[in-house]
Amino acid sequence: CALGFDWHSSGTTTTTLGALKQACKPEEHGIAFAGGKGKASMRTKEEIGNFGDIFNLPSVKIESMRRASKLAAKVDNSCLQDGYQIYHHSFILTEKGEWAVVQQGMMAEKKYARRYHWLGLKTKSFIEEPHEAILCDKKEEKALDMTSRKSEEARKASIDLANDGIKRLNRIITGQRSLDEFTHPEIHFPERHGIHRVDISPAGWKALKIAGEIQPENYEELISISGLGAKTIRALALLSELLFGTEASWKDPVKYSFAHGGKDGIPYPVDTKTYDETIDVLKNALQEAKVGKGEKYKALERLKIFTDI
């Protein structure tokens, strides 16, 4: 099945996943789609439980999926600060207990969308380069990426700062050290000295207080604390570099979402060599497919339309 959309359409994600959620019957197809766009995403936890029961999955497996859903949303909204706000979250699960996440964020002022892909079978870590793909039309000049391998030391330092408790953070943030010492060329601060309390929300301070009490052992535990959002994660990253010299990655990890380019040169001109190679791969796949000759012939005829362009 292939769907065609205008090259910059955010509906590529929302419409396709919405249609699949409506069309797929868990009992019949062995796959289910939880969550969705806007308010539908708020029902993800409940729907994972419902579908898990239909598939007779163990309660431990269902809870691990709920945790994966929550962490994927937290990471893409807070640990990867690229300017795109998540508004669509789909959690896909199978009767075998496999899962994937497809979510989409929007940069409202530029009206650009960005899609994030997670694949459970390949997710070895939720906080270090966990994505199967991040796709967008545009690569940002800078984006705080706390999931990058290059941010490992910054993550460790953030844990240490959080575990030290809010009293020490208060002393640092209220001006004992100046950000004049902090000279990262890609970061622009407000026209003032130091990081003041305004940079961390009240919920963030509450979360940091909890962190000081429970002493998270790793970064995943730290970001799982309720109320610890993007501002607090960013503040900890900046303070970590200021105090310990541990630099976080500011490189946007996105990849273009177009395999062959566009006829109008957007986002780049059509790559005819790759285009032809893709057709050859599809043709070989059809030749090897275990389907009837009639179906195979019809599929090859449909593919021929593209080869004759």
Results as ranks from 00 to 15, higher is better:
residue 97 G to S: 06
residue 162 A to D: 01
residue 173 I to Y: 04
residue 228 L to N: 02
residue 165 G to D: 02
residue 41 S to T: 00
residue 26 P to K: 00
residue 80 L to C: 07
residue 5 F to K: 12
residue 222 L to P: 10
residue 279 I to Q: 13
residue 272 T to V: 14
residue 165 G to Q: 05
residue 24 C to N: 06
residue 58 P to A: 04
residue 65 M to G: 10
residue 106 M to W: 10
residue 196 H to G: 14
residue 56 N to Q: 08
residue 211 A to F: 10
residue 142 K to M: 08
residue 227 G to Y: 09
residue 146 M to C: 05
residue 93 L to F: 00
residue 116 Y to F: 15
residue 229 G to M: 15
residue 272 T to L: 14
residue 42 M to K: 05
residue 119 L to P: 00
residue 117 H to N: 07
residue 130 P to E: 08
residue 153 E to N: 10
residue 24 C to G: 01
residue 80 L to E: 02
residue 246 T to V: 05
residue 132 E to A: 14
residue 290 K to I: 09
residue 147 T to S: 02
residue 139 K to D: 01
residue 17 L to D: 05
residue 260 H to C: 13
residue 286 L to Q: 06
residue 139 K to I: 02
residue 177 R to P: 02
residue 223 I to V: 15
residue 80 L to H: 01
residue 247 E to N: 11
residue 171 R to N: 00
residue 246 T to C: 11
residue 148 S to K: 09
residue 56 N to P: 04
residue 52 G to H: 01
residue 53 D to A: 00
residue 304 K to H: 09
residue 131 H to S: 07
residue 45 K to L: 09
residue 291 V to E: 06
residue 193 H to D: 15
residue 177 R to S: 09
residue 46 E to V: 06
residue 117 H to D: 09
residue 303 L to R: 13
residue 48 I to C: 00
residue 305 I to G: 03
residue 235 A to M: 15
residue 44 T to A: 04
residue 88 H to E: 15
residue 207 A to S: 07
residue 88 H to Q: 12
residue 248 A to D: 07
residue 40 A to R: 07
residue 191 E to M: 14
residue 92 I to M: 11
residue 283 K to P: 05
residue 295 E to Y: 01
residue 289 A to R: 07
